[in-house]
Amino acid sequence: MLNWFKTSYAQIGISGTIYYLADIILRKIKIGSIYPYCFLSQPLSAPAKKLRLSKNYAVRKIQPNDPRLLEILAPSICDYRFEQKAICIGAYKEETLTALLWFTTDVYHEDEVRADFIPPIDACWDFGVHIEPEYRMTRAFSNLWGASTVIMNDMGYEYSLSRISAFNHISLHAHIRMGAKLVAKAVFINIGPIQISLSNTRPLLYISFFKNSRPIFRFHKNDESITI
């Protein structure tokens, strides 16, 4: 137990460890859950400079009716995302869809908790990264991200925001290695039908009693970097 605590503390800090323990307990007794999020801002030009893109991959927007997309994601998920006017971009190798990710350019309706995230006008929101298992140790994702940044850049977006679970310290550090900066944190505590969100950005506290009651987080161009 002590070793677990030490490891957890080293990886996700004291608050992350407390949330993690509370989440385990809430799920065990089946009354709720906790989702601590880190919000990251990623320049759309940063990683492409460090990577050699391969000509073997063709990266392009995926059409909603592409059968290869529907083999990877359930139609209901695709419909929900396309209804948000999300853009899906895929990396194809010899017409095999190897990896994909999604961007919204307006509001992102979070589907894990009740919340909406609005990026600044010159930013988009990325989510839903998927890499087919056999392509995870290849250049598929780097090609996808590198070319996607060009597509989004050409559309006028300078950076992309995303949210990552604070429990996922590996992904968090991977984003920071790619040049992302942490701009905000929030924790969503669900107990029964009630959701309490606490954040260091507005709204600082929001208590939601109903499905349609969602805090709206607006991000700004000059949001300062904060420490993990």
């Binding site: 990577l51 050699r52 140790m137 991200w145």
Partner: peptide
């Protein structure tokens, strides 16, 4: 992870001045 693999391959190519084809690499 998936992005680190690409960064690693690029770093190896640059350091050793070699070319690594996509089909050369696997898990």
């Amino acid at each position: 992870d998936s992005m680190a693999v690409a960064m690693l391959i690029t770093a190896v190519e640059e350091h050793f001045d070699i070319f690594i084809d996509d089909d050369d690499i696997s898990a």
